[in-house]
Nucleic acid binder design. Structure first.
Lengths: 245, 245
DNA sequence: TCGTATTTTGACCCAGCGTCAAAATACGGT
DNA sequence: ACCGTATTTTGACGCTGGGTCAAAATACGA
């Protein structure tokens, strides 16, 4: 009976595929719960029930609840990196590409609000222990890639003479500034009723702040001498493709 | 025997004082634990043990663990407001006072790192329910005061002709930008090894980013035409007084 | 068909939050 | 000084939810 003899290799991969599918399933369920009802709503027993496997099985994928959170963060950062790299391919001047990255930061939050929530939660929950080192490594690598994308654009700007970096200020420092502005801005927008405090159009304001900062650094062309609205539209078109999770 | 007849009024206040003392004690212990070992290290039983009262007594001050966290946040924001208001009194041009506020944001983190940690944790932990409405009100009021301080400086800047606000952009929007920059910046500094990612002198970079942003808005005098180093030194001197908790 | 390796299961342990009836204490009146 | 009432404090207890592990189920090869 040759039919029931499945090559060990194929069997292995089929199993691996199923395992992978299940891991994704766990992450999806966890992400939804976390985003819907916060940390309080994330419960290992419920996750197990929802995916129709036992708790022990969940614990074979993730060694602890924290590790599961870390898994969510890694997935989130991966999708962010995907969006960023795409944005950085926008044809045009360095600051236009930077604009595209800014747009992608906004799109990231619009498209994957759950991922952003997770990133935020991880931001301030000192986890690190009790989590799989491999997952930690993956997260760090993804962050590193984000930085590298920025730094690349920055170097191009310097090379083209559009940007002159101050002393002791690298392209990564600029990235740090923009990152602070976006992260801080979106965090505040999501956690507080800013309109009530007198802030007009907070989300739009983030974009404006982004450009004000770049203007302040003297990154040419300045927003007064260029139509970044058009650039934004092009970036949105570029990033509209492939709307998958 | 008139001596054992203590006026009801005095008795009441003595009790109130003791109660207040105990509340402060609880908050101090909780803050230290939280800052030292994160959420995992914050434990109602241990707090009770450490202050040498029973758990029930702790629960008379705070209706839940979340409520205790909210209490910590309120205390943190209060001390921030104190620092901000002081900073806003620096004599000089509007942007100098803004510089002083920036300095106070840094000092806040240096002086009360525990408070900052707490604010961060609260930032992303959806609590609100299960907490005393009065405490919520107090927290919102303190945030509102921070905004008001900024907005006041902004209005002065506009009045003096040092700042021209774009359309649909209020002084509060500027505050929002600076707030994002500082909060995001300090959060990143505290949570990640930025040097490893290529960022030179992250804390100093926050200050530079702050001024780059203000330059971008065209808030005069621009950093190229004024010695804000001197302003910073003055602000530090002003804020050095009264180093109490 | 059977024995071994692997995977899955869920009962179980325990930490920790929040409750509440009982104990302790304070206080006012006699 | 004594007692009764009001207030405060206590800690045992209930219960939820994270994490473990021996036993059951399943897969696989001979």
């Amino acid at each position: 009976m040759a039919t029931d003899v499945i090559p060990a290799d194929a069997s292995r991969t089929r199993k691996q595929r199923e395992w992978q599918r299940r891991e994704t399933l766990i992450l999806d369920v966890a992400r939804r719960r976390l985003s819907e009802s916060g940390m309080a709503g994330l419960n290992m027993d419920q996750i197990a029930a929802e995916i129709e496997y036992s708790k022990g099985t969940v614990y074979q994928h993730f060694r602890s609840k924290d590790d599961l959170l870390m898994g969510l963060a890694a997935a989130a950062t991966d999708s962010r990196v995907a969006l960023f790299s795409k944005a950085a391919t926008l044809p045009g001047r360095s600051r236009e590409r930077l604009t595209a990255i800014g747009v992608s930061a906004r799109l990231f939050i619009e498209r994957y609000p759950d991922h952003f929530r997770v990133e935020q939660i991880l931001e301030l929950t000192q986890i690190r222990d009790k989590t799989d080192p491999e997952r930690q490594r993956r997260l760090a690598a993804a962050e590193s890639r984000c930085m590298a994308i920025f730094a690349g654009v920055g170097r191009d700007g310097v090379a083209a003479g559009d940007l002159v970096l101050p002393e002791n200020f690298s392209a990564e420092n600029v990235a740090f500034g923009l990152w602070s502005l976006c992260m801080g801005g979106f965090t505040l927008v999501m956690s507080r009723p800013l309109e009530e405090l007198g802030v007009i159009d907070p989300p739009g304001s983030i974009f404006r702040n982004y450009h004000a900062y770049l203007d302040g650094l003297g990154w040419r062309p300045l927003s007064g001498e260029f139509d970044y609205g058009e650039t934004t539209a092009r970036a949105e078109a570029l990033l509209a493709e492939r709307p998958e999770t």
